[in-house]
């Protein structure tokens, strides 16, 4: 286990073996929970994505990888584009390999008579409740209590754009520095989906474009660089 702990924060590559607990007898081995990017192989844990190894107490490990292709995972909130209405369900593009289905009953207050007003091309923020390797993913716009809880159709007059999944995770950190820095410039609305899609809306087209471009470009910047860019921008444009 010590070998795994030592590598937290380091870059790992697919095929790296993280722990060799096999020399310890059964029952004495430490348990660990494999997050995304880790896979169990008999007695070892093998890395299957390249990225940075992360750890959360007590024993949760995962790999923070850099990719743009979204692989649906259960419970994640995503931004989808409604592509078709077919019978009882909407077909929603969430950036995965397959279109996801969204039942028209899975909206707050929707009944068989009272259908939600969803048009083709609309954006929906929804949660994945079924995401399996070989099955069509399924979305809902309500939580377990039947409340919308922030989900549903949105996006009148904003801009949707796509960034890498790594950046989205950085933005969704509880105390994300990027968001805090941006927040100090001017007010704007933002929806961030785990599938790498971000929707922003601000007072004017100009401001929306500024936010969108800043978010796109800040991925590979260090904190100092980002602050510098923001400072220059707020001097020039506002």
């Amino acid at each position: 286990m010590s070998s795994t702990k030592e590598r937290v924060g380091c870059v790992v590559l697919p095929g790296d073996v993280l722990t060799c607990g096999s020399e310890l007898p059964e029952g004495k081995r430490d348990k660990l929970i494999c997050g995304p990017g880790l896979r169990r192989d008999v007695d070892d844990v093998v890395v299957c994505k390249s990225g940075i190894l992360r750890h959360k107490e007590p024993n949760l490990y995962w790999v923070d990888s850099q990719q743009t292709r979204y692989v649906p995972a259960k419970g994640e909130g995503v931004i989808g584009i409604v592509t078709a209405k077919s019978g009882d369900v909407f077909k929603v593009d969430i950036g995965g390999s397959e279109l996801a289905t969204l039942s028209y009953l899975a909206f707050e207050g929707a009944t068989k008579r009272n259908r939600p007003n969803v048009q083709v091309g609309d954006l929906v923020y929804s949660q994945l409740i079924i995401a399996n390797k070989d099955m069509e993913p399924e979305l809902v716009c309500i939580d377990s209590c039947g409340r919308a809880n922030g989900m549903g159709v949105f996006g009148a007059g904003g801009l949707l754009f796509k960034v890498s999944l790594g950046l989205v995770r950085k933005l969704l950190l509880p105390q994300s520095e990027v968001i805090q820095d941006l927040d100090s410039m001017f007010p704007f609305e933002m929806v961030v989906g785990m599938n790498g899609r971000i929707w922003v809306k601000s007072r004017s087209t100009q401001q929306t474009l500024i936010v969108a471009n800043l978010l796109e470009s800040c991925e590979h910047m260090t904190t100092a660089q980002r602050r510098d860019v923001l400072r220059r921008l707020s001097q020039n444009c506002l």
Partner: peptide, 24 residues
């Protein structure tokens, strides 16, 4: 795989931005 469709909001925003002589 199918092409990612363009959402209504993107289309409207782009056209509006172009009308304002701005590009994304």
């Amino acid at each position: 795989m199918k092409e990612t469709p363009l959402s209504n909001c993107e289309r409207l925003f782009l056209l509006q931005a172009i009308a304002e002589k701005k590009r994304v």
